[in-house]
Amino acid sequence: MLTAPPRLLLVHAHPDDESLWTGGTIARYAAAGVQVTLVTCTLGEVGEIIPESLAQLAADHADQLGGYRVGELRAACAALGVSDHRYLGGMGRWRDSGMVDTPANAHPRAFASGDLAAQVQELVAILRDVRPQVVVTYGPDGGYGHPDHVRAHEITAAAVAEVPDVERLYYTVVSRQAVDAGVAALAGVDGLPWRLPAPGELPAVDDAEITTSVAIGDHLPAKLRALRAHATQVSVWQAQDGTYSYALSNGVAQPVLEQECYTLAGGSGEAAETDVFGGLAPVEHVGADR
């Protein structure tokens, strides 16, 4: 019987999250012929801006950062091979809520305080349209506590519960062992333009919580191109010895890791140690009778 390509859907809060958390995974599966759908929940309107030349785009000035980041995200999707990108509820439906206890939390369109039921149903509609076997988002803490990440987790968990076609739900996490090794390697690199993180400063989980580790070494060039596309939010640096690092607006150096890790939150974990689709049955071809 003819089979259709597997389908992977990722739910991320802001432009750049797809590249930072799951860029290598997206690039790997897209290159293998998987249909990759990315759902972005906001335009990232209140992100901090790295280039001084773009500082006036900020929410408390021209308030044009969200529109600018649309272009950044488009370029990142092209670098990663995303075949289907959608904004939850349409472009601009919900707004970046900002970090906890910031004025952006009170905006009337803030994603984190928006109508939860409406957000869930918007995602349910996408899931029913795409019919992915595998869905990826953040864990209950949003990875590091950002209100929009937490809300993305909440709506994804609720939406997946309504769509039985989804066979696996994963939460994206970072290996503490890999981060510690990466930071230790950066400590020996000359010319690093940012400070090294303090122990425990970067979000990570104990490796015992990881169920799936996806090797992305062959796809780091695509991930790095995607990170560079998000120039308002991310700076990428390469040492003379070829070592890469990146930093957000806080100027804390982060290592570029050769694996992206996940915790299985729903579905069978059989044969899923190194492949989010591992052990799943081939997808039946969508014919005229379906």
Rank of each mutant, 00 (worst) to 15 (best):
M1D: 08
T3W: 05
A4M: 11
P5S: 06
P5Q: 03
L8H: 01
L8S: 01
V11R: 00
V11H: 00
V11I: 11
H12F: 10
P15G: 03
D17H: 03
S19N: 04
S19R: 00
W21H: 11
G23R: 00
G23P: 00
A27M: 05
V39P: 02
V39T: 04
V39M: 01
T40S: 04
T42S: 09
G44K: 02
G44Q: 01
V46L: 04
G47E: 06
G47I: 10
Q56S: 15
L57K: 12
A59G: 09
A62K: 14
Q64N: 13
L65P: 05
L65Q: 05
V70M: 12
C77I: 01
A79I: 02
D84L: 06
H85R: 13
H85V: 08
L88F: 05
L88R: 11
G89V: 05
G89D: 03
G89W: 00
M91V: 15
G92C: 10
R93D: 03
W94H: 14
R95F: 01
S97T: 10
G98N: 11
M99K: 10
M99A: 13
T102K: 12
T102N: 10
P103R: 07
A106Y: 00
A110Y: 07
A110W: 00
F111I: 02
F111L: 14
S113Q: 13
G114L: 05
A118R: 13
V120L: 01
Q121M: 13
V124Y: 00
P132A: 03
V134E: 04
V135A: 09
D141Q: 13
D141E: 14
D141N: 15
G142W: 07
G142V: 06
G143E: 04
G143T: 09
G143L: 08
Y144S: 12
H146G: 08
P147Q: 05
P147H: 07
P147T: 05
H149N: 06
A152F: 02
H153G: 01
H153K: 01
E154A: 15
T156R: 10
T156W: 06
A157P: 00
A159V: 04
V160D: 12
A161C: 06
E162D: 12
P164Y: 05
P164W: 07
D165M: 11
E167W: 08
L169S: 09
Y171E: 06
Y171S: 07
V173S: 06
S175V: 01
A178T: 12
V179M: 15
A185R: 15
L186P: 09
G188L: 10
L192C: 08
P193A: 07
A198P: 04
P199I: 00
P199K: 06
G200C: 08
E209D: 14
T212F: 07
L224G: 11
R228E: 13
A229P: 11
S235M: 14
Q238C: 14
A239V: 10
T243A: 14
Y244E: 12
S249T: 10
G251D: 03
V252N: 06
V256Y: 09
Q259L: 10
Q259R: 15
Q259C: 14
E260A: 07
C261P: 11
L264N: 12
L264R: 15
E270M: 11
E273G: 14
P282A: 13
V286W: 15
V286E: 12
